[in-house]
């Protein structure tokens, strides 16, 4: 058992444990922090996969910007602790069964195509990180320049939409 595999197993257990923490925690702030931990472990997965740009974008965009936005809204609404509502009686078992079915389907596909994944399992031994970043930048700004620019329009539309949505009407109190 080599070092990379040990690192992978530790990271995988942290990722699954933090996802479980997100599912069970009653306090919304704790749930958000569990999700930050999950995003950080996935960022390390990206580093293991030789994708440093995506790893850092993950940390800054997801763990940084998006989760801070979540924490802002949680604290703004004061909804850290929601009272335990009247749960639908069949909701929990039904949900667990459906999620298990989804996982079983994914596992079935994975093992059925094991031949395919096994043949893909040996990518080149070492990745030249600098070269990867260079190629990524060239591809993004040449071949995918139009989608990249459209993304900026999308972000602008989202920003305007949020401002319009949350703007108080004239004369509205509160």
């Amino acid at each position: 058992m080599n070092l990379t595999l040990i690192l992978f197993i530790v990271l995988a257990s942290v990722a699954v444990a933090s996802a479980a923490g997100l599912l069970v925690s009653r306090n919304t702030v704790y749930a958000a922090l569990f999700l930050v931990l999950n995003f950080a472990t996935v960022a390390v997965f990206y580093l293991l996969l030789g994708a440093p740009f995506i790893a850092l974008a993950q940390v800054t965009i997801y763990a940084g910007a998006i989760m801070v936005l979540f924490l802002f809204v949680i604290m703004l609404l004061g909804s850290e602790k929601l009272p335990r509502g009247q749960a639908l009686p069949w909701q929990r078992p039904m949900a667990i069964i459906l999620a298990a079915v989804l996982l079983a389907e994914a596992g079935f596909l994975l093992f059925q195509r094991l031949q395919l994944t096994a043949s893909l399992a040996n990518p080149e031994a070492s990745v030249n990180t600098t070269e990867t970043l260079r190629t990524l930048g060239m591809t993004l700004f040449n071949q995918y320049l139009l989608p990249f620019e459209v993304t900026s329009v999308l972000l602008l539309v989202a920003m305007v939409g949020v401002i319009v949505l949350t703007k108080k009407e004239k004369g509205e109190q509160g």
């Binding site: 990379t4 992978f8 990722a15 996969l49 994914a106 994975l110 096994a118 040996n122 070492s126």
Partner: peptide
Amino acid sequence: QTIPLSYYLAISAVLFA
């Protein structure tokens, strides 16, 4: 790189579920 692709796909499937 010694971790098979299927391990990553497995953890991805678990997180998605």
